[in-house]
Design a protein around this nucleic acid. Structure first.
Length: 301
DNA sequence: AAACAGCGCAACCGCCAAGGC
DNA sequence: GGCCTTGGCGGTTGCGCTGTT
């Protein structure tokens, strides 16, 4: 399966680039421009794959690349843009002159993602989502696939809450967003994921997770594996009181399909909302982030 | 001082879309 | 319309550096 490799791997050097190789590549590109990457190694006298040359050039050797730590402005820009487009690193990079998608991706994965997750956990622990937070903490520790899956879902939801809460008006607090599971009646327009999570679609997934737990030894066994009491592993508001509700699920693949359906619906509803409300900005005001409770938004203080 | 763990980043891998034939 | 090539992209890996025990 798959396509033919971009180059014959026999005898092609891999790994870190030597200064001499960098010089050959820079000299060639500066003289001829970055065309035909497949032929470039041969023409430039490099024993490298064309793809490797392109990556080296675009991520490291390009003269307009900006090196050094990210500024607060860049940090916030990444945050804003990621909230809109997700992991579209090239789109984010296009808005940050001198920064490469690879660099932004690394920055996100090593700094911001970790911070965001911690913030989400902190919010959950402070609010009524303590059980979910326990699940999230158990995500890596559990040996039960269903428990891990559920925990991953909860973690993703918490991240979404932390992120989306920032789009609410400044009067809307994170606490109210976190309390969406049962009592919220009003949400800011973009608060789609939370409403979907509490909708039939969310119910459907939670039912699926419950059945999965049965399939892997029942809720008690999986809760034990996840390190949480059975009642907390699937609290009532998360559908834990109805293990028999969903009968059509039983595999992680099915749950993944559900997750995709959940996301698809979210995007559809998002598009509908935009049409209904007219084009609205998800960043109503720039200083919203200054008031955000998450440490993410005050990383340089 | 040595061993170990965690982190950051450069580079690789595999998939996908666009364009040419 | 189908196949092939190429470039682009996002996810993942592996290595080196740094901090901790």
């Amino acid at each position: 399966m798959g396509r033919t490799p971009c180059c014959d791997s026999k005898g092609i050097k891999k790994g870190p680039w030597a200064p001499e190789e960098d010089k050959l590549l820079v000299d060639y590109v500066q003289a001829n421009g970055p065309g035909n990457w497949r032929m470039l190694p041969k023409l430039a006298g490099l024993n490298r794959c064309g793809k490797s040359c392109r990556l080296r050039w675009t991520n490291y050797l390009r003269p307009d690349i900006k090196r050094g730590p990210f500024t607060p402005e860049e940090h916030n820009s990444i945050l804003h843009l990621h909230a809109i487009v997700g992991n579209k690193w090239s789109m984010i990079a296009a808005q940050l002159p001198g920064r490469t998608d690879n660099e932004i991706k690394n920055y996100w994965n090593t700094h911001m993602k970790k911070q965001l997750r911690q913030d989400a956990l902190a919010v959950a622990v402070a609010g009524e989502g303590a059980a979910a937070a326990q699940l999230a903490r158990a995500a890596t520790a559990s040996s039960c696939p269903a428990a891990r899956h559920m925990a991953q879902w909860e973690t993703a939801r918490l991240e979404a809450e932390a992120r989306l809460s920032l789009f609410s008006s400044s009067a809307t607090t994170v606490t109210s967003a976190t309390a969406s599971s049962s009592s919220s009646t009003e949400h800011a327009a973009p608060d789609i994921f939370l409403r979907l999570w509490n909708s039939e679609v969310g119910d459907s997934f939670r039912g699926a997770a419950a059945v999965q737990q049965q399939g892997h030894g029942g809720p008690e066994a999986c809760a034990a594996a996840a390190g949480v009491p059975a009642q907390q592993a699937l609290p009532a508001e998360l559908g834990g009181d109805d293990y028999s509700a969903a009968s059509t699920y039983g595999t992680e693949a099915a749950a993944d399909d559900d997750y995709q359906a959940f996301l698809d619906l979210a995007m559809e509803e998002f598009a509908l909302l935009q049409g209904r409300l007219g084009a609205f900005s998800v960043f109503p005001q720039a200083d919203v982030f200054a008031d955000a409770p998450c440490s993410l938004f005050a990383p340089f203080e």
